[in-house]
Amino acid sequence: MTDAAMNDPDRAQRAQLALARLLPKLFRGGQAFVGVEASLSGLDGEQAVTRPAGLPHSVAELTAHVNWWNRWMLDIIEMGEAQPYPKRAADTWPPVQAGDWGRVRNEFYELLSRVDTHAARPDLANPVNHEETIGELLADFALHTAHHFGQIVTVRQALGAWPPPGGGDTW
């Protein structure tokens, strides 16, 4: 938030409300991109773990990675303290088997419901660590989620599993 917004309580409150309205759309999708529920719908375990030729990750791996980071962020917000940063990027990509897909998908939805609770908080401008506010941390992770869900669409397109039964743009 800018210094001007911080010095004008009405402006700061409007900015806070705008961010609170935007955050769920960033995590869930909306007008700008297909929602996460639709993006994950209609895949069986085998499809979810298939890595198309030339692509580095499967839908299940991408979802498990998003879960890892969303859980990490929620731990910071809910515990009120910094969590250890992973030593290697590979540590944030848990292995996923076809039989794990239902659990990974359900975990994504459970974490998303926890995020929804925090996105509506009235204290998004409060610091959560030495560098960010709650709102900034949530926005950063919303963009991370949106980034990887764009990749999920690409993987599904390469698998011939797009659009999903829930619908989605085909262009």
Rank of each mutant, 00 (worst) to 15 (best):
T2P: 04
T2N: 10
D8S: 14
D10S: 13
R11E: 15
Q16R: 15
L17K: 13
A20W: 02
L23F: 05
F27R: 02
G29D: 02
G29S: 04
G30H: 05
G30N: 07
V34H: 03
G42Y: 01
L43Y: 01
D44T: 06
A48C: 11
V59K: 01
V59R: 01
A60L: 03
L62V: 02
E78T: 10
E78G: 06
E81H: 12
A82R: 11
Q83M: 14
R88S: 14
D91E: 15
W93T: 13
P94D: 11
P94L: 13
V96Q: 07
A98Q: 09
G102W: 00
E110W: 10
R114V: 04
D116A: 14
D116I: 07
H118K: 14
A125D: 15
A125S: 15
A125T: 13
N126A: 15
N129C: 12
H130V: 03
E131Q: 15
L138T: 07
A139Y: 11
A139K: 08
L143V: 11
T145H: 11
A146E: 09
H147E: 10
Q151A: 12
T154E: 13
T154C: 08
V155N: 12
V155R: 04
R156E: 10
W162C: 03
P163M: 09
P165N: 10
W171P: 06
